[in-house]
Design a protein around this nucleic acid. Structure first.
Lengths: 111, 111
DNA sequence: CTTGTGTTTAACTGTCTTGTTATATAACCT
DNA sequence: AGGTTATATAACAAGACAGTTAAACACAAG
């Protein structure tokens, strides 16, 4: 359950990307992840399951909470696929590189 | 129709990634794209429509053929999202970088 | 043990996706 | 015009997906 299909499919949902963006700031419990979203708890729980099956996060019990953490290695597969293709398409990727290499704050996507 | 949702969703399908890999080698007609796949023509046609709506490819008439070409800019959005997160997770991304940058001749090798 | 809080599962619904075959459109060629 | 090739659309079936509410599970605390 750790191939590119799952990774890209997991990243295709804006709620899940927002969850990952939240987790990029540090571990969080399911309740903390739920808070900023308008959708129900079970919906978030299933998004977390999708992210876990894509190996993008892990969940571990912590008392009666469940702490979620990123697994950055999983993202590497997707990044590698894109960067492999970058070798062929390097025309406009270089501009992106220049843009990203600037010292700037990150602009995440809002849910 | 050009947001990250569409881009990642388009990349989530292995057939579509294979089509992109084929197009990375150069333009191709729909028939040429169809050839290596076991699925029907209409199925490929709809994959191409998905890729086009994600702005990953363009299609242009060429006689009675239809020539498909990559649009690398569209991939940049997905790459930017991943690379933005790389700033937080740069633990294991650095290893990927080292691996990919090894044959550092990505400057003029367009086939 | 009983109750409350956090989280997941079950069951259901509506929508989207992927494939199929059959039919239509568009261009080329006598 | 009529026939052939290349590609797209229509109509349909099967399955995946995202959301809901209600119920179950797991642990904490009276």
């Amino acid at each position: 359950m750790k191939n590119l299909d799952h990774t890209f499919a997991a990243l295709a949902d804006p709620t899940r990307r927002a969850i990952l963006a939240r987790l990029a700031l540090g571990e969080a419990t399911v309740g903390e992840i739920c808070a900023p979203f308008a959708i129900s708890g079970p919906a978030i729980s299933r998004h977390l399951k999708v992210l876990e099956q894509a190996a993008l996060i892990t969940r571990a019990r912590d008392g009666q909470h469940r702490r979620c953490r990123l697994v950055p290695e999983a993202m590497a597969g997707a990044a590698e696929w894109i960067q492999t293709h970058r070798r062929f398409w390097n025309d406009s990727f270089d501009k992106l590189d220049a843009h990203l290499k600037q010292p700037s704050d990150h602009k995440g996507d809002t849910p």
